[in-house]
Computed example of a mutant assay.
Amino acid sequence: MRSTPVDGFRLTYDRAGSGWPVVLLHGWPGDRTDYRDMVPLLSESLDVVIPDLRGFGTSDKHDADPAEQYSAKAQARSIAGLIEELDLERPVIAGYDIGSRTAQTLATCRPDLVGALVVAPPLPGVGRRALDESAQREFWYQAFHQSPLIECLIDGKPDAVRDYLAYIWGRWSGPHYAVHSDQLEHLVSVYGAPGAFAASIAWYRAGAGAVATSLAEATPEPGRRVGMPTKVLWPEHDPLFPREWSDRLDDFFSDVELRYLDGVGHFSPLEAPQPFAAEVLSAADRLNSGKAV
């Protein structure tokens, strides 16, 4: 299915099940199929909407100013438009990676549209720790994504896309997970067309990556913290976001619970679909029962 345009971008999305609404937001490098193992766990009792974000999958990709059209606020505008178009009332918004940052931005900019959050890193509170030597060894790719070399070396070259994505998935996943060959080939098919890889990294070129965002963050006043119930799922083996960075969540969220995901790397919906789905179901149940207002 395709949404109506927001800023000229139409989103492709899947929808399954019925019940309290939930919107699942994918990460990089991924697309809406990141949630393929979670949808069956949720759709028996929830109305599940899974879009491709701007520039990803089969959603629109435009040659536009990244800061204007691919930032966290721009991605959030598209999700807000989809929520309003589908008349979803106070959905649970769940996400990781880019999807997490988009969910948090939506909760800040349009709190009227969000019932609860279930998110994995990135989360605020990192600050200048993003510049630590150990962090910079992992975040090198964000500087690389700013370079025009991408268009020369990777964009439109499926074999190069395959090698790069296989490296990223192998580096960021936990010790007991390996991306399935079918999933990798699917990602090559959607990231490998001319312009597709460049569109996927427009997020970083917009300055929305973890390093730039962490360095620019400021602790909000208590009344300006994210107010809706928020469950944070923090993996054990995410090389980008070590667990010690979870120490300042209360500075940014007024109603937050932290759960550690043991044995799991960066790709939490794929590596831990059952616990992730359980938290989404729990959040939806609390909203449905009227316990969260």
Rank of each mutant, 00 (worst) to 15 (best):
T102N: 10
E68P: 01
S200T: 15
A67K: 15
D250G: 12
A278V: 02
L281C: 10
G174W: 10
A208R: 01
P222F: 01
I79W: 02
V293E: 13
A196K: 03
Y70C: 09
P122Y: 03
H186V: 10
V39Y: 04
C109A: 13
V119F: 06
Q104N: 12
K157I: 06
D14R: 13
R2S: 02
W20Q: 15
F56P: 01
S43T: 12
S100Y: 01
Y191V: 11
P121K: 10
Q75T: 01
G55V: 08
L88C: 05
V22N: 05
R54Q: 11
V39M: 04
E133C: 14
P239S: 02
F144M: 11
L41A: 05
V179I: 15
R286V: 06
S59P: 11
V256F: 14
R90T: 03
L281A: 11
E44D: 14
E185I: 10
D97I: 03
W234E: 05
L270V: 10
S200G: 14
A16M: 07
P273A: 06
A198G: 08
P158R: 07
W234K: 04
A16K: 09
A218Q: 13
R90N: 05
D112H: 11
S246M: 00
G156L: 08
G125K: 06
R286S: 13
A196L: 07
S78L: 07
G30F: 07
V114S: 02
L249H: 08
L113Y: 01
E138D: 07
D65Q: 10
A116W: 12
L187M: 14
L46P: 00
L123W: 03
P5L: 09
M38Q: 11
I201G: 09
S189T: 13
R224Y: 03
V6I: 10
S282C: 07
W20N: 09
G209F: 01
V23W: 01
G207K: 10
P175V: 14
L41D: 12
E68A: 14
D31N: 15
V126Q: 09
L240M: 12
A208S: 14
D251E: 14
